[in-house]
Nucleic acid binder design. Structure first.
Lengths: 218, 218
DNA sequence: GATAATTTGACCACAATGGTCAATTTAACT
DNA sequence: AGTTAAATTGACCATTGTGGTCAAATTATC
């Protein structure tokens, strides 16, 4: 009597990798993203990635058929994260500051698991390698356009002073938010509880918020 | 009768390079800086530098005895540029906004000749290569400390609202300035006359300035 | 026309690259 | 326990890229 043990007959793409347990997957993803952010596609080293992620060369090329394949996977993974962030946005919140504040908090939580996704997608748009340039343009650029549309959808601008140039005010708010965000991320490592840090973050942000509101709002 | 043609008997360091005419020198400097900014010390390629700067491999290693030697030269060159910027600061100008505004203008002019110096020095402090790490810490870190001291020296803070947290206000001003600066640099290429662009720049900056002043000042 | 200075690029030994694959280890099943 | 499939390994490969050298050619200076 022959064995009826099920053989793996055919696999869909990435199934080998997606089968891994979450911890291992996330380590590989984060290590790879970091390498690509630091060096760009061409100069990023698969040797370095396997060393850092503590897997063998063979495994990496079992999970992904090529360096480019890995890169495409990471881009799509990053896009999914951003998409889910968009979905979390509460469109009933019409106060620009509160809207921005919530997004900042979301980002902080994402940062805990994927510290470099945002950098990765942002830097990918500057990528010069011919091998991935077109694919990036196709997949990433559109997501940013959709993003700015959603972030500012349904905002109540009647609270702004009449004299103020709202576009410039928004720019200042953005620059301040990114500056504050960078500063926060540098401090985050000294906290172990992200929830606690979130509280501190909000309290601190409110002070910057107040300063800008004093100028923006009536 | 023997020739009395002067022979080059001994040379001080960098004399070969400094002898070149300004145009050629600056091209090499800018190409090299760009390569180091993009790739860091280890991964920056001397082959790429000579190709971009349109000189031969032999020439580069005639001017500089090694890649590290070139890097050290560039760091020192960058530091000189920043030092001269500090010297231009008018310490009699006690209005923070005007002080910042002037520095921004200076930077804009420096950008015309050396588009990546500031990026270069900033990114050098993040350099991980053991070969240059210590040298950078020694030479670059101190210059930044001196910088922040000079930039805010002699500023009149009595114009600020009593309720405002001045440190946070300065942070916001800085973030706004850098954000605006980046935006300006992206636009600068469409102008050929930097003086004309400088005027436009000031006019535009004043609008952002006004918004912040409305919150910062009494 | 002679001499010195500058520039060139083929060349070197060596390190790193993305990717392969036979062999081993681990897991899943009866 | 025994069998079979799946997952993992790392030595290995051809190829490209590295920082740096140097004899020869070119250019400049008298």
């Amino acid at each position: 009597m022959w064995s009826n043990y099920q053989r793996k007959e055919f696999t869909t793409i990435y199934s080998n990798f997606d089968k891994l347990k979450a911890e291992k997957k996330e380590l590989i993803i984060n290590v790879a993203i970091k390498e690509f952010v630091q060096n760009g596609f061409d100069k990023a080293s698969t040797n370095e990635i396997v060393k850092e992620a503590k897997i063998s060369k063979g495994s990496l090329f079992n999970y992904f058929i090529s360096k480019k394949d890995l890169y495409v996977y990471l881009i799509e993974y990053g896009i999914q994260i951003i998409e889910s962030l968009y979905e979390q946005i509460d469109l009933n919140e019409t106060d620009l500051f509160k809207r921005i504040e919530n997004i900042g908090l979301q980002k902080l939580h994402i940062h805990r698991n994927f510290p470099h996704v945002f950098d990765f997608l942002a830097s990918s748009t500057q990528e010069e390698s011919e091998e991935v340039k077109d694919m990036i343009k196709h997949k990433v650029d559109s997501i940013y356009d959709r993003g700015t549309e959603i972030i500012y959808r349904n905002i109540d601008y009647t609270m702004f002073r009449e004299e103020i140039d709202i576009e410039k005010a928004i720019e200042i708010l953005n620059w301040t938010m990114f500056g504050f965000g960078d500063k926060a991320i540098q401090q985050i490592n000294s906290f172990e509880d992200v929830g606690e840090f979130g509280d501190q973050y909000l309290k601190e942000w409110e002070k910057y918020s107040e300063i800008l509101k004093h100028s923006f709002y009536k």
